[in-house]
Amino acid sequence: MSKQPGRKSILANFASYTPQQRELEQENAPSEPTTSSSRVAGVIGATQRTLAELREEREELKAQLEASGELELDPELVDPSPFPDRLIDDDEEAFEAFKLLIASEGQMMPILVRRHPADPARYQVSYGHRRLRAARELGLKVKAKVGSLDDRQLVIAQGMENSARQDLTWAEKALFAAGMETAGVKARDIRAALAVDDPELARFRTVCRIVPEDVMRAIGRAPKAGRTRWTALAKACSDDDAVDRVRKTLADAKGSKSDDRFVLALNAAAAKTRKKLETVNVVDASGSKLGTANFTSSEVRITVDPTHAPGFAEFVRSELPALVERYKASRDS
């Protein structure tokens, strides 16, 4: 999906040092853009201040990256980001085409890494996970820029790179935000990393609170499912029975595309469960059957044969007040 005319990403120039765009276009499939609602003047002013802060931070990071040298690293020495922002990509054909491009033309754009805080002989990737995977599978060195980044700068650079290209799906952004929040990253920095506002961050939190992480990861990227459909799934998953149905459905749907898994999950969550029905025969002292009584958690239905029990229905109706009083007495005792 193309960007709206006249709206340039706040990070459109973040990776301006790169010489090629073809590699990026094959590496990243567009997802649904986040639409911002109109705000009152006070909020607009706050947003403008936030954008100014983001521009300043972008320029600082850009200058730092431009000053850093480019290295060729052994992919086996590069670990994933401590803040994962990607779900498993089930479009292997697209990745194979991307890998073929790397094999035939070489890696045009470097990835961004930092020294591993716990092991200076290793690195952690900020962005460029698919380039890293392609180089590893091809047995090639991976071109990388090494930035001196703390956790905050790493997630902001990581989110900025992806958000500028509309690279992450809505679910990936939600899980990325949840992971950063769990790690203690401030809300301000999460918003900066993903270029989202407070209402969207709140929606991320709501969906991740209701839909278990294992369910979201089992569904996968689901690029066609945006905010509205994930919110609908969260609403449908408001009880444990719905979540259990979704897990069972996803367990039987392995091998399907993530968008198809999302549809199956949503349908399973929204399906009405059939109430458990218990049937008891109504018999007299001699054992003769007069009818049946059906019970569920919210319904009692008695059916009698009037030829065997004439007037039984009227008798039950007349006894209901006394039966209710006996029920209340048993509850109070």
Rank of each mutant, 00 (worst) to 15 (best):
A171F: 05
E172F: 09
E172G: 12
K173A: 03
K173V: 03
L175P: 03
F176H: 00
A177E: 00
A178C: 09
M180C: 09
E181P: 00
E181R: 13
E181S: 11
E181M: 06
T182M: 12
A183P: 05
A183H: 05
A183V: 01
G184D: 04
V185F: 02
K186N: 15
A187T: 09
A187D: 14
A187R: 07
D189M: 14
I190D: 04
R191D: 08
R191W: 02
R191C: 13
R191H: 08
A192G: 15
A192Y: 11
A193C: 11
L194G: 05
L194V: 06
L194E: 07
A195L: 11
V196F: 01
V196M: 00
V196E: 03
D197Q: 08
D198M: 08
P199V: 05
E200Y: 08
E200I: 15
E200T: 15
L201Q: 04
R205E: 13
R205D: 15
T206W: 14
T206Q: 15
T206E: 15
C208K: 04
R209M: 14
R209L: 13
I210G: 01
I210S: 04
V211A: 10
V211Q: 09
V211E: 05
P212Q: 06
P212G: 12
E213A: 15
D214L: 05
V215R: 01
V215C: 05
M216Y: 01
M216K: 02
M216E: 03
R217A: 02
R217M: 02
R217L: 02
R217E: 07
A218F: 06
I219F: 11
R221E: 12
R221M: 05
R221N: 00
A222P: 01
A222V: 02
A222L: 01
P223G: 03
P223Q: 04
P223N: 01
K224R: 14
K224Y: 14
K224G: 15
K224I: 13
A225L: 10
G226H: 05
G226N: 08
G226F: 02
G226M: 08
R227A: 13
R227F: 07
R227V: 06
R229F: 08
A232L: 09
L233W: 10
A234H: 10
A236N: 10
C237Y: 08
C237K: 03
S238Q: 15
S238V: 13
D240G: 12
D240T: 13
A242Y: 00
D244T: 10
D244F: 10
R245T: 09
R245M: 12
R245L: 12
R245F: 11
R245Y: 10
V246C: 07
V246H: 06
V246E: 00
V246G: 04
R247S: 00
R247E: 07
T249Q: 12
A251Q: 08
D252P: 01
D252G: 10
A253G: 02
A253W: 01
